[in-house]
Design a protein around this nucleic acid. Structure first.
Lengths: 194, 194, 194, 194
DNA sequence: AATGAATGAGGGTTCATTCAT
DNA sequence: TATGAATGAACCCTCATTCAT
């Protein structure tokens, strides 16, 4: 598999940095190659085209993130605990990687059809995790029984996403992690059973 | 003022259509000009460059939307009613204009610095409206007194935005307006005072 | 005749300034129009196209210069005196009009076929004046009898022109007029009869 | 060094031809590329932009010409002989290369600031050669001791230049080389010591 | 596998010119 | 005559991608 070859990740990591620094369109393939320490042509031994780098990058990083989340959540009992775990993991993940945060929140919002399709495909895995938590919460009685799963998921994801985007746009001037608990409280109340 | 010149709005409307159809990058200036029924050069009598069309388009449409919202909200008594009004207006606005919905939710998420800056500037007006509702809700006792305004705003805007984006990505196959009430209920619960 | 209409000279004078300041290619027609205080379209009531302005400008200014020279020379007796008169007039003419000096020495050296043709046509009148002086000098015995008229003319014109160009390129930092006499002496020696 | 790469000279030679044929402004980069047998983009691997081709072309050709002249002059004893050698070399150089003659005498007289600056820089090398001859002539007593070096240089260069330009404008209908001796005689007389 | 020189399609923008008023 | 809004042809340059080595 491609992913085992060292240059594959080398290029992906270079792309994250290059794209975060100057934006996707400004990040020429030759710039990424230079950053990765490989020749321009080498990029095309590992990626179909420039867009493929962007998508692969997301698939790679997000894929491992979802796996990690899944594991972490297993260990928690209640839906509320699982949700908190997820929010914290989500925030921590992006807090820890400045470049990736920019790429995720800004650069990946490119509006190309194929790009969007493949990104949404990856995101689906994440949304499924959220759905699982919601359904579990409803079944356990933690969450309101008439909660619309799709809407609840949109609220949860939308809120987290908006929170991170705002933080990135504010140049990460404040502590994102500190927002995990209050955001969680807000969402729990929204989903909750009162 | 530019806005009184018929060609100004003519070009903006053409741009909305052209960009919605093929995306911002694929929408050549000449294509927009053709759609508007003007010469290529005419575009540059009204806009500094291509990007300026995109921004102006947003400023124009969003600006008038915010004004409209502001008026509509005036007529409502409680914060909850105002919030519902806003969500409904937000959803209706985009439901009614297929092309604009695509441009707003997808194309405007371009990652160019200046673009983002000017868009955020417009958005601030919208966020202020949301903030006003939240603060009013807190003061009237409708909303929890320990509600963090910024977080609540991020939840409200994030949820609405995510809901519309999902709807657009699903090719508007279902009725967005029907989601206004349940989304409102969800958000009210989240902000609410229990 | 066009030349009697006030706007004709108004535009020409504006063109000299605009072209001297930013160069022919940078001097947009609209800029010249503005400088002249007329509408863009008005230019085309007096000139066929942009290039026609440049040529007309030269024809106009150079034409009257040649006439002037011709008259001044009449009054002089010897060929040497006539030559000095001409050199002094040539240098004075360009010394007195900074903008015109730039246009003549630099901007008019555009390499467009038609432009060159018409400019040469005007120049011919000047060269004829020089030829006349040379022939007179030969006939009177002042100049060498085996002087090649064309070569002598090229020496005279070439030397004057190069002197002015060098002066312009040196940003007119020294007194051009002061060079008239030494240049004259040099040329007389070259043409002279020893 | 760039100059060793075959494509560099290939493009320069193509540019000389293309520019001589249709003029600098009419000579599209794609036309030059085609003439050179390379892709448009290849041009930009060797030149900063279109103007850079024009300047490089001059630097390249003139640079080697000056070197050549310098060597040839070494072998001559008197200043007069050196001057003749230079005039002959100058005329021969342009006689032998029809395209280059056009480019040098007409196209390079473009009035762009940076262009002029860099061209003058190259020319300085040439003017220094002329100065050297003049000074030598004065010191050896061949030339008048009160000769102004700058003026003499302007006469020499101006006369040669004007002679070549006239010849080019007359479509090279006569033998330029045949003028070397008479021009030399004229100039020597001008500089001479009588 | 790796290189990097070469490719060439593609498009935003300028500005001389026109023409309806 | 005069206007100036509108026109649209024309072109340089970038950069993702290829391919001979």
């Amino acid at each position: 598999m491609k992913k085992n070859k060292p240059k594959y990740m080398q290029i992906i990591d270079a792309a994250v940095i290059a794209i975060a620094e100057v934006g996707y369109h400004q990040a020429q393939v030759s710039k990424i190659a230079k950053q990765a320490g490989v020749a321009d042509g080498t990029i095309y031994l590992y990626f179909k085209n420039k867009e493929d780098i962007l998508i692969s990058l997301f698939e790679e990083k997000m894929g491992s993130f979802i796996e990690k989340i899944d594991e972490m959540i297993e260990g928690k009992q209640t839906a509320a605990e699982k949700l908190l775990m997820m929010i914290e993991a989500h925030f921590k993940n992006l807090s820890d990687d400045h470049h990736m945060a920019i790429v995720t929140q800004l650069e990946l919002r490119q509006s190309n059809k194929e790009l969007r399709l493949r990104i949404n495909n990856v995101l689906k895995g994440y949304l499924r995790v959220i759905d699982k938590i919601i359904i579990e919460g409803i079944e356990s009685g933690e969450f309101s029984s008439d909660l619309d799963v799709r809407l609840a998921r949109q609220m949860i994801f939308g809120t987290m996403d908006e929170t991170v985007t705002t933080w990135v746009l504010n140049e990460e001037k404040y502590d994102l992690m500190a927002l995990a608990k209050p955001v969680h409280k807000l969402l729990i109340k929204g989903c909750g059973n009162h």
